[in-house]
Write a protein that binds this DNA or RNA. Structure first.
Lengths: 185, 185
DNA sequence: CTATTCCTTTGACATAAATCAAAAACTAAA
DNA sequence: TTTAGTTTTTGATTTATGTCAAAGGAATAG
């Protein structure tokens, strides 16, 4: 999904506003396995995925990767708390499929928020939507069996579930890849 | 914590704005065991807890209650997605200790959001803070042992952990009360 | 095209936490 | 204070999922 369609689907920006907003974004292409942010860095850029897939993950003490979220087409990708609160990121951000993204810096984003009341509204809407999604995942993880969790995954990320490594999905769902492999069969 | 202190701690409202905003809230007292919202209802009111404690919970298919969140002094309490998106609530909202709360209707809240750019900013900040907290809980639930989860609870809700029923905490942490009882010992 | 590396599946076994059941310890009411 | 109700603790057993180990398949680079 296109970024300007996404913006206007949530808030009715007029064309002047939209032009101004879009001019703050920069279009980029990233190839598979590109790392956007390392754990511990402060996230200074917000990304919008036009096409492709990204994920956030962190390393457990034992060195195992744990996927925290997937970002598909039409979604903003960042380490939310690191970007908005300028604290060290708990996660790595990685592009896992060749992607076209739009990026914007924290300072530009803040300018837009203070320049346009509508933009602030947009930001709030997107945050609440994300909050709802995280709560859904939490409920799935907390109260469902491994099998039901996989079904949640298929619903939440229908376009992504079959394009990423099994191990990434397993850790996202809080189970081992052996367990997920057995469930899929 | 007082509501006007809370508002100004996040956004520097001037006294006229603050007065206008506060006039939209209504102060109420609720006693223990009051139900504010039932599962399935659309949440039309947002609450701010000045003192006391509330919780949200839902019923699993087998009829067991599962605590979803605790709301202590200085926090907004609602069924977030139901309130902001006006969809049926997945949760019950219950006051579990005699409380003093400020309530505001969805329509008044929306008026404030559109009247004051600063209020929209406030809303975004609060949403992001909540998002961060839910992500923290998610990480605790997903990757930590029962014991570590209890330690997370003590950190996140230091003032609440010793005031609510063990069963409520156990279900919040995604474990049985027997397990929590064994951990505490 | 072939070799190396990575990813997925399968099997055997271990374990944290759930379940079931009942006793003990609080709380609140009469 | 006695009674009834609720909440917490303790014990015995079960179970879903994790861990460890190895083999089979796919993908990628040279």
């Amino acid at each position: 999904m296109n970024i300007s369609d996404f913006l206007t689907s949530i808030v009715p920006f007029d064309s002047a506003e939209l032009g101004d907003i879009l001019s703050c974004f920069e279009k980029k292409k990233f190839s598979k396995n590109t790392m956007l942010i390392e754990q511990g860095e402060i996230c200074k850029t917000l990304y919008f995925i036009e096409s492709g897939i990204g994920r956030s993950y962190f390393l457990k003490k034992d060195g195992k990767e744990v996927t925290q979220w997937f970002f598909g087409s039409g979604k903003f990708m960042s380490s939310v708390d690191s970007f908005f609160q300028q604290t060290p990121s708990l996660y790595y951000l990685e592009i896992i499929e060749d992607s076209v993204v739009y990026s914007i810096s924290k300072s530009k984003m803040d300018e837009l928020f203070s320049k346009y009341h509508k933009m602030e509204h947009f930001g709030r809407q997107v945050s609440i939507e994300m909050l709802t999604k995280v709560v859904n995942k939490l409920n799935a993880i907390q109260f469902q069996t491994a099998k039901e969790r996989y079904e949640y995954m298929l619903e939440e990320f229908p376009d992504i579930s079959h394009r990423v490594a099994l191990g990434h999905i397993a850790s996202y769902l809080g189970m081992t890849q052996e367990t997920l492999s057995r469930i899929r069969r």
